[in-house]
Structures are given as structure tokens and as C-alpha cells.
Design a protein around this nucleic acid. Structure first.
Length: 480
RNA sequence: GGCCAGUUGGUGAAACGGUUAACACAUCGCCCUCUCAAGGCGACAUUCACGGGUUCGAAUCCCGUACUGGUCACCA
């Protein structure tokens, strides 16, 4: 079997959408599963829609995701992406388009855009373009060319018969040729259309598996007509179902939906995002959901790509991101979390202890800020929060408990979590309280919150003896 | 409107003619517990868009209907 070669062929018209990224991921996985090549090709044949910096975003995103391409023009020792506007300078597309005219498989079209629009308006829904230029005589064509009349090159389509192909995901698709229009191959500005450049480059780059969104499903027969006109082999097609925002709409930047960059900025890990979106439209054969990129490549199977749009569920991504955070090597976790902690917390506090306290609680990095802000400073709170059903505490009882806590703690020499806990636990026993009855008021006194990470004693350890005693005395003052 | 495709719980989904219709997220309980989490356990689709058919047997095969999406550009 020939080497598997896939490509990701985005057009640089904005940000990297989750749907795009998933297509890139699938293309990458399909190649890597069989030790194939993954190629990045930027399709910028529409000069009007170019967006500054878009290529960089695509490039950086793939890099962050570790979706590295295997070849491309040399860029300072690194592989850059193939760029169609660069390739166009070599005249590749124009050459092939004209060759098709020579072969009698395409023709010059001198129609003006306004004419087409007028025709379209008049015919409305039933518009079907029949190109008058197809009837032009050789002499007329020669003359128009000599007069430098602007032209496009259109594919010839015979309206008889039907064209079909087998998609790896959707199965056999058949359409009648009369529903296919004679699409433009080369635009009047000399640029190829996306469709045409796509076919030419896929062939030239020996792409074996074309992976793309299912919006191309209905135009694929037209692509095949081009392959056939040249007598080229048709690649395998893998059309992917869309990633949806809700039942009706796809995810898109236009709607202000989160892009990959947005998610990263919110504290989602690239690995988790990749893992999650892999599961949107594809299901592993084993009962498992957490996969590293290389594990995905091993487990991936085109046959298990689904055909229906999958709704992007941020809640599940959140959960999965939390799993990644919890399973991560602790040193890596500490480094990752450190800046988020020190964003609000004074450096005199040990970030590792804080990181431990929030370890099982963080799902996305951006949650950390609020979670730990009380270490630095207690926000204003209502003494009502001393009311706790489980601890059976209320402000009145706290007034009694807190001085006991203060007393117990002040005699601790070696200040650490274990010692604090043991001292308090034995005091609780002595006084006939459950542990929680001592701990909960302490937690409120130290954090000003009914819910705080780590537990009262861990918070105490982090704050240090002085600050702990100070906060408890303050709390007592507040209650009186 | 023509053409192409899709339709399993709130969400992602499994199942490839015979299962109590997996599993995961979310939700709700319970347990654990120094709060919250995390973790453990359990509940959660009499039903697979609907209507016919084929079959001893259908979520799975066939036909029709409905709904949803895609596509019909010198956009990609």
C-alpha cells in the first residue's frame, strides 16, 4: 500500500475554530496511525479575504497542539507550510487550467460578473447556469483573447449520466451530472479557485486521503470530474461531520464562539482540548476516553467516525481538563499553576502548598484566581456563614469555639498541617465536639468563606502561625 | 426550490437482526470527610423522529413521511 499522506488545508481568514482544529487533528491521526505524512497547506487564493496574522495563528495553534507537519518549504531549518499564493507564482495552476482547455475538458468564459448576477436574479431559485461562451467559435475566442478581454476558465460538464464516489464515512454518494455546474477553475485575476487549486495540489503532493468537513460532500463529484479530466487517480475521501454550537448552528467565530485560543486563554490545556474534540464525531472501540495524542493515533479508526453533527459541550471539556490537571506530574502541575496563584496571592505564601490545597478542585486554570484570593485578603463576609447544618454551628457557637481554637493553636510549636489537625482533633474530643464543629468556624475565620479549598488546617498551615492567630482573633472580635 | 446527507437520553455516544439499549459528561441521591471538591456506590431512554413493511425476532434491513443540516459564487 502506498504511503498515507494527509493534509490540513485551511484558508487564512481568521481564527482557528474548534471545528477546523478537529479536522486538522483527524487528518493528523489518520496519517500517523499508519506512519504517514501530515502536510500543512495554506489556501490563500482569495486575496479579498486574507486576514493579517491568520497564517501565524494557524501555525502556532498546530504547534501548541503538537500537530506537526512533516514537510514543506525550508524556513530557517524548519518546515514551513506550503502556501498556495507562493506556488501560484510558479504558474502551476494556470498551466494546468490551460492544459484542460487544450484537452477539451474546459473552456474560456468571458461572461462578466454583472451578467451572471442579472441572470441569477431573473431566474431565481431555478437558476442553472448555461455558459454561452461554450458556443463561441475558435475565431471569436482568439479575438477576445487577443483583445485582452478578461476571462475565466470553466470546467466542461456533460449533463448526461451521473457521478458517484465512495466516502469512507458517508458511504456511496451519487449525483446526476446535470446538477453539477461548470465551475470556475481559474479566476479572471489569474488566481485559481479554491476548488481547483485544491485538486491540483492534492494531486501534486500525492495526498492519499482527503480529510475535510462534510460541507464539501456535495461538491466532491465536481472535484472528481477534474481528476478524471486529467486522468489522475482519485484520492480516498474522509468527510467529517460538523462540530455544532447547538442543534442548529455550527461552531464559528462569527457567532462569537470560543476558538482554540480563547479556550487556552481561559485555562484549558491543549492536550485536554485535543482529547475532547477527538471524541466529537469519533468513538473509540474500547471503553475509554482519556487519550494522549500518540494514543489517539494508535486507536483512531476512520470507520468509527460518525455522520451526525456533535454539539460542543463545554461542561464535559471542563471535566476532562480537570482530569488532565489531576493526572499531571506534580512538578509540571506546580509550574503550571504558579503564575495563576501569584496573580492574586502574595509571594510570601508557599505556592506549592496552595497548589496542593486546590489540586482536586481546579478544572480550569482561570478558576484559580477566585479560589485562592482569600489567602491574600479576606473579603467582606456575613457572619451568617457560621451557620452550618453539617457542623451544627452558628455565630453564637462560633463565639465559644473560636477562642478554644485560638488557645489550642497558640501552643503549637512545630507548625504544620498534621500537628494543627491533631491538636484540634484532640481538643474537640476533650470538649465533646465533632471535629467539624471546631474546624468549620476556623475555616470561616481564616477564609471568610463557607467554602474554601484544602480544609481549615491546611489553610492554617499555609497562612503561618502568626497570620492564623491574627485572623482568628479578628474573627472573634467581629462576633462580639 | 433542486440535489446530497443525517435523525439513539439534556450532551458526547456504543450497539454492526436476538443485550435488562454499554460507557462518559451533566443532574439527583447516598457513603467517605475538617467545608467544598476529588473518590466510591446508586438512580436517570418500557425505548432508539414518525408511519408502514420484511423477519420467529428490528434501534439495527426496505419504503414513505416529518424534521434538521449541507450545497447550488470569479468564497473557501
Amino acid at each position: 500500500m502506498a504511503k498515507i499522506r494527509t493534509r490540513f488545508a485551511p484558508s487564512p481568514t481568521g481564527y482557528m475554530h474548534i471545528g477546523n482544529l478537529r479536522t486538522a487533528l483527524y487528518a493528523y491521526l489518520i496519517a500517523k496511525k499508519d506512519d504517514g505524512d501530515f502536510i500543512l497547506r495554506v489556501e490563500d487564493t482569495d486575496q479579498g479575504r486574507l486576514v493579517e496574522g491568520a497564517v501565524d495563528i494557524i501555525y502556532e495553534t498546530l504547534k501548541q497542539c503538537d500537530l506537526n507537519h512533516d514537510e514543506g518549504p525550508d524556513v530557517g531549518g524548519d518546515y514551513g507550510p506550503y502556501v498556495q499564493s507562493e506556488r501560484m507564482k510558479e504558474g502551476i495552476y494556470s498551466k494546468y487550467a490551460h492544459k484542460l482547455v487544450e484537452l477539451g475538458k474546459a473552456h474560456y468564459c468571458f461572461c462578466k460578473e454583472e451578467d451572471l448576477e442579472k441572470q441569477r436574479e431573473q431566474q431565481g431559485d431555478s437558476f442553472y447556469f448555461v455558459d454561452p461562451c461554450k458556443l463561441l467559435s475558435k475565431e471569436e475566442i482568439e479575438k477576445k483573447l487577443a483583445d485582452k478581454e478578461p476571462y475565466t476558465i470553466r470546467l466542461n460538464v456533460e449533463p448526461e449520466g451521473e457521478t458517484s464516489f465512495d466516502d469512507e464515512v458517508y458511504g456511496r454518494i451519487t449525483v446526476e451530472n446535470k446538477t453539477l455546474d461548470e465551475m470556475v477553475l481559474l479566476k479572471s485575476d489569474g488566481f485559481p479557485t479554491y476548488n481547483f487549486a485544491n485538486v491540483i495540489d492534492d494531486h501534486l503532493m500525492e495526498i492519499s486521503d482527503v480529510v475535510r468537513g462534510n460541507e464539501y460532500l456535495s461538491s466532491t463529484p465536481k472535484y472528481n470530474l477534474i481528476y478524471q479530466a486529467f486522468g489522475w487517480d482519485i484520492p480516498r475521501y474522509i468527510h467529517c461531520p460538523p462540530v455544532m454550537k447547538d442543534e442548529h448552528q455550527k461552531l464559528s467565530k462569527r457567532n462569537g464562539d470560543a476558538s482554540f485560543q480563547d479556550l487556552v486563554a481561559k485555562g484549558y490545556l491543549p492536550e485536554a482540548i485535543l482529547n475532547y474534540i477527538a471524541l466529537l464525531g469519533w468513538a473509540p472501540s474500547e471503553d475509554r476516553e482519556i487519550y494522549s495524542l500518540s494514543e489517539l493515533a494508535k486507536a483512531f479508526n476512520v470507520k468509527r467516525i460518525g455522520t451526525t453533527g456533535a454539539i460542543f459541550d463545554i461542561e464535559k471539556l471542563k471535566w476532562m481538563n480537570g482530569v488532565y490537571l489531576r493526572n499531571m506530574d506534580m512538578d509540571k502541575y506546580y509550574e503550571l499553576v504558579k503564575p495563576y496563584i501569584y496573580e492574586t496571592v502574595d509571594k510570601k505564601y508557599d505556592y506549592k502548598l496552595i497548589a496542593n490545597a486546590i489540586h482536586d478542585r481546579v478544572n480550569i486554570l482561570s478558576e484559580i484566581k477566585d479560589m485562592v484570593s482569600f489567602f491574600n485578603q479576606i473579603e467582606d463576609y456575613d457572619i451568617d456563614i457560621y451557620n452550618n447544618k453539617k457542623a451544627k454551628t452558628d455565630p453564637e457557637l462560633a463565639k465559644v469555639i473560636l477562642p478554644e481554637v485560638l488557645n489550642t493553636l497558640s501552643s503549637i510549636e512545630d507548625w504544620n498541617n498534621d500537628n494543627i489537625f491533631m491538636a484540634l482533633a484532640s481538643k474537640a474530643q476533650e470538649l465533646g465536639y465533632k471535629n467539624i464543629t471546631m474546624m468549620y468556624p476556623m475555616q470561616v475565620a481564616l477564609s471568610g468563606r463557607s467554602v474554601a479549598p484544602g480544609g481549615a488546617t491546611a489553610i492554617g498551615e499555609i497562612l503561618g502561625k502568626d497570620e492564623t492567630l491574627k485572623r482568628i482573633s479578628n474573627a472573634i472580635d467581629r462576633l462580639n
